[in-house]
């Protein structure tokens, strides 16, 4: 009986302030779709960077005339560098085989001899791929006796680092701003509902109703508005994916896969935001307005 009363009150509240509620649902939907869209973009960017970090290698070219002991000595010195995760030795013969694999021609047929130097392919720990750290490691290795050259994609590393930082900063800024905006919006609709029902709240308080009993219809109202906004956000994202896929299908041979999980995530995020904003708003406005009238 208590639950059905609370649910009935929730729907009465929603119906009474239906226009602000509708505006809230639409605005939450648009904001949440931007937030989740940016989140997805950020996730995509980070996974790409993660992949790049995984594949990132430093090539250490050795002088061709080094003997076995000298190569082992360099390998031991490399193993002492704690940023290095994996060392892979590539002999002259191995280098020639890779050359043939990649270019389809035997180096001996082209030049009568194998000019490719022996080398080490080094992988660093993911967290050690910051451009400054990589530069330090490369500089240290280049000073080893027997090392002719050290090569890695420095420019790409710097570029990615720069963009990741930019995406993170802009993303966090926009997401925070939109979350604050959604919070204000839900808070305002709850404020209107509480104001419209201030006499009822005062009556319930005088009858001895607990705070939660009074607040629950408003909290549920916020959850419903948030969840509906979330569903609308899911729909907008679904639509955006289809529009993007349709627009780029003639240019690139790729398509974005829309996961139904996005609907679940946006509905749950909206509902949680609604619950958080409305419970705080109901609590503060309940005491503010209810005392004014009786």
């Amino acid at each position: 009986m208590r639950l059905s009363f609370i649910l009935k009150q929730t729907f009465i509240n929603l119906w009474t302030a239906r226009l602000p509620a509708l505006v809230a649902v639409f605005t939450i939907g648009i904001s949440l779709s931007i937030v989740i869209g940016m989140g997805l973009l950020g996730y995509k960017a980070f996974t790409s960077f993660d992949l790049f970090q995984d594949k990132f290698e430093i090539e250490v070219f050795l002088y061709p005339n080094l003997n076995r002991d000298e190569i082992t000595h360099i390998q031991n010195k490399l193993a002492d560098i704690h940023q290095i995760k994996m060392i892979n030795y590539i002999s002259k013969e191995e280098a020639a085989r890779i050359f043939k694999e990649e270019f389809g021609e035997d180096i001996h047929d082209i030049l009568d001899e194998n000019p490719l130097p022996p080398s080490f392919n080094i992988k660093l720990y993911k967290q050690m791929t910051h451009p400054d750290i990589v530069e330090n490691v490369a500089k240290r290795i280049s000073e080893f006796q027997g090392v002719e050259d050290v090569k890695y994609h420095k420019e790409i590393l710097i570029l990615i680092e720069k963009y990741i930082r930019l995406i993170t900063l802009v993303g966090i800024g926009v997401i925070l701003a939109l979350i604050i905006a959604m919070n204000i919006l839900i808070r305002n609709t709850i404020k209107l509902s509480v104001y419209a029902r201030r006499k009822q709240i005062a009556i319930l308080q005088q009858l001895g109703a607990g705070g939660l009993f009074i607040r629950l219809p408003y909290i549920l109202e916020g959850i419903l508005e948030g969840a509906l906004g979330g569903a609308f956000a899911g729909f907008l994202l679904h639509l955006s994916f289809q529009v993007i896929n349709f627009s780029v299908q003639y240019i690139f041979d790729v398509s974005l896969a829309f996961s139904p999980l996005i609907y679940t995530v946006s509905i749950i995020t909206g509902a949680l935001m609604g619950m958080f904003s409305s419970s705080r708003a109901a609590k503060s406005f309940m005491y503010l307005f209810a005392r004014d009238d009786y």
Binding site: M1, R2, F5, I12, I203, Q206, L207, G208, F213, Y294
Partner: peptide
């Protein structure tokens, strides 16, 4: 307050609820 019945000059009923629901309120809560 749950042990006290309060009656006011201005009734203080919840107008959008029916008679039954108004009377049942203290028991519902």
């Amino acid at each position: 307050r749950q042990g006290i019945g309060i009656i006011f000059q201005d009734f203080r009923l919840i107008e959008n609820l029916n008679v039954f629901e108004n009377v049942a309120l203290p028991l519902i809560m």
